[in-house]
Design a binder for these strands. Structure first.
Ligand SMILES: [Zn+2]
Ligand SMILES: [Zn+2]
Ligand SMILES: [Zn+2]
Ligand SMILES: [Zn+2]
Lengths: 135, 135
DNA sequence: ATGATTTTGACAACCATTTTCATTTGCGCG
DNA sequence: CGCGCAAATGAAAATGGTTGTCAAAATCAT
C-alpha cells in the first residue's frame, strides 16, 4: 500500500523545516524502517505532485520537502541557520506578480518567492561579543 | 588576462535570456572559440561572484546566467517558452519581504523572487519556436 | 632568458536524482 | 487455498550538471 508514502509523509509532518530526500531516508533507516532510497524519492515526488508537501531547491541544488499546515498558496520565511520555517501569505506579492506580468504582455503567470533570514533564536544564540563571525 | 572571462561575458551580453554554462560553452565552440568547459564554468562563477551577472536555478536544477543591464537589485520576468527576460523592480515586494521577516523576529533578511509566464510573442505563436533564447 | 605564478582544459570524480528491471507484495477469483 | 496479474519495491546501474585534479601552457617578474 501507500504505507511507505504515509511513513514518509509522517516524517515530514514531524519536521519543523524542509528536509531532503536523503535526509528523510537516513532518519527512517535510523529509526529501523525497512525502506529503500528509491521509494523515498518516489513517495516525496508523489506527495509533491498531489500538493501534500511543498518543494524548493536549496542553493546547492538539492530538493527539499515540507509538509505545510496550509493547503492554500503561500510562501516561506526560512531561517538559514536552523531551518525553522514560517508559512506566510503575501496577497500583495501575488497581485504584484500578476500585474508585472500582464503589464509586459505575459500570460499564465506563476512565481517563486522565498524569504530567508536568521530567526530570533538563532540570532540571540549567535555569539554577541568576541569576533562576531568573519567580516 | 581574463580574456576568456570577457569572452564569456560577451556571449551573455548578447543573449536575451538566461543561459546555462553548457549552453554558453556550446555556442562558443560553435563560433570557433578555443575554450574548455571548465573555464566557462569558472568564468561564470567569477562573474556571478563579482555581481557582473545574475544567476538562478531552473526547475531541473541547472544554473543559468544573465548579464543584466541594471546593476541595482531587481527581479526577473521570464518567458518559460523562449526565455525572453524582462528586468523588473519591485519596491513593494522588497518592503513586504522585509516586513514579513521582522514581523516574525527574523533578521538579515534576503529573498528570491522570480516571475514566469508566456510572453506575447510565444502566446500568439501557435507553433513552438525552435531555437530557444539567444538574441 | 628563466624561474615563479597564474590560467587553462582534458579527464576523472562527485553526488543527488532517475532508470532499470528482477523480485516481492497485495488482492481478486475459482 | 492456489493461481495469476498488476502495482509496489529497492538494489544496482545510469544520468548529467558541476566540481576537483593536475600537468601543460600562458604570463609575469627579476
Ligand atoms: Zn509551504
Ligand atoms: Zn534559526
Ligand atoms: Zn537580473
Ligand atoms: Zn516567449
Amino acid at each position: 500500500m501507500s504505507n511507505r508514502r504515509d511513513a514518509v509523509h509522517a516524517v515530514l509532518r514531524q519536521s519543523e523545516g524542509f528536509r531532503s530526500a536523503q535526509d528523510v531516508y537516513a532518519e527512517m533507516r535510523a529509526e529501523g524502517a525497512k525502506i529503500g532510497l528509491t521509494t523515498v524519492y518516489r513517495a516525496l515526488q508523489a506527495l509533491a505532485d498531489t500538493g501534500h508537501v511543498d518543494v524548493l531547491r536549496t542553493d546547492d541544488g538539492e530538493s527539499v520537502y515540507r509538509a505545510c499546515a496550509s493547503g492554500d498558496h503561500h510562501h516561506h520565511l526560512v531561517c538559514r541557520t536552523c531551518g525553522r520555517t514560517v508559512e506566510v501569505a503575501g496577497p500583495a506579492v501575488e497581485r504584484w506578480a500578476e500585474a508585472i506580468g500582464s503589464e509586459h504582455g505575459f500570460t499564465e503567470i506563476t512565481h517563486t518567492v522565498e524569504v530567508f533570514g536568521t530567526c530570533a533564536v538563532c540570532s540571540t544564540a549567535a555569539r554577541p561579543a568576541r569576533t562576531p563571525s568573519r567580516a
